[in-house]
């Protein structure tokens, strides 16, 4: 239950261990995802498939890490264990931003618009759900539902107005998928850089996350500027959510599942949870993406990875609602 005390040494050791786990899973996913490499006739084809799988693995890592970090941060600052970028509607807002950008500018504009969409959404949700500085847990989730509904409607409106040739498969994209047919390596690099920077930044905010979880007055009395912490965290979490949606669409529930599995395994300390969420989120989505490619062997088509995370996430959400909600609603 009580792991070793945190020192720089144990901290770096745990980061090294997480890196090893993540790299190992990536290695397996590249070698064994779908078609058997050794059955392929030419080295050319092997290289082609390896490149595609490397792209998929890196994209899944970046998106998974981003969503797990954003989920952890929203849960800490909103003091609601069910907060997740997708559930809150932040991913939906980001998706609306990305769709808008596709009408206007090139693909590089997508993360910016995704970020703006996410930031506006979390601003609206926070303004609606808070009353005198306190966030009503039920109002928060209900606000997320209607914001999601609005964004989905707006996306369908835009989509139905544009030229059918430009539409693309929005329904597929809205489920959240890692598209390997049209790789954007520069986008992966950019979003990856943002996510690493956010993870590193959150490592320095983790002590504040712990204190806010105990209580905002307590946090303030212990030297945390709560309003500033909340602003910085919301902006950073919106940034990585928006960027990840630009990369792979709104993949749901990763930000819910990953931090909670880690909390069950290692306790509530955000100093441990921040690096753990970063690496576990990455590993989790690589595995989920691997599963979609293995499912390709069943039906001949690759399902979007968001289908799997949603099917895993919804029972998980219900479990949290039933078993942990009482405790959640006690946190004021």
């Amino acid at each position: 239950m009580n792991p070793r005390p945190l020192t720089l040494r144990t901290y770096l050791q745990s980061i090294a261990a997480w890196t090893g786990l993540w790299a190992g899973v990536c290695f397996v996913a590249i070698l064994f995802g779908g078609e058997r490499l050794w059955a392929l006739p030419s080295g050319e084809q092997v290289r082609g498939i390896l490149a595609i799988r490397l792209y998929a693995v890196l994209t899944a890592s970046v998106v998974g890490a981003a969503l797990a970090l954003a989920g952890l941060a929203f849960q800490a600052l909103l003091r609601n264990p069910l907060a997740d970028p997708f559930v809150l509607g932040v991913s939906g807002g980001a998706a609306l931003g990305v769709i808008l950008s596709s009408l206007l500018v090139t693909v590089v504009g997508a993360p910016l618009f995704g970020f703006l969409g996410a930031l506006v959404t979390i601003g609206i949700i926070y303004a609606v759900a808070q009353r005198r500085g306190r966030i009503e847990p039920y109002t928060l989730l209900l606000t997320g539902i209607v914001v999601n509904a609005f964004c989905a409607a707006a996306i369908m409106l835009i989509n139905s107005l544009v030229d059918p040739k430009q539409r693309g498969d929005v329904a597929y994209w809205m489920m959240g998928s890692i598209n390997t047919f049209d790789p954007h390596w520069s986008l992966v690099g950019m979003v990856g850089g943002l996510t690493i920077a956010t993870g590193a930044g959150f490592a320095f905010l983790a002590k504040g996350f712990n204190l806010v979880a105990v209580g905002e007055d307590t946090a303030g009395a212990l030297g945390v500027r709560v309003e500033r912490l909340r602003l910085v965290t919301f902006v950073a979490a919106s940034l990585v959510t928006g960027a990840s949606v630009a990369l792979a669409g709104p993949i749901g529930f990763v930000g819910l599942i990953c931090p909670h599995i880690l909390r069950m395994a290692m306790g509530p300390d955000h100093r441990r949870l921040v690096p753990a969420s970063f690496f576990f989120g990455a590993t989790f989505l690589v595995l989920a993406d691997l599963a979609t490619r293995l499912l390709e062997g069943v039906g001949g088509q690759t399902p979007p990875v968001g289908v799997l995370t949603a099917m895993a996430g919804v029972p998980f959400f219900i479990y949290l609602l039933r078993v942990r909600w009482r405790r959640a609603s006690e946190i004021r």
Partner: peptide, 30 residues
């Protein structure tokens, strides 16, 4: 502060260690 219900999952020792936050460094290691 006035007592509020707290369900953070921290142990008593961890809760008391949080009081050291103003003294710890940027990463918060004790």
């Amino acid at each position: 502060p006035q007592e509020t219900a707290q369900a953070t999952g921290f142990t008593v020792l961890e809760t008391v260690l949080l009081g050291r936050s103003p003294h710890t460094g940027a990463l918060g290691f004790e």
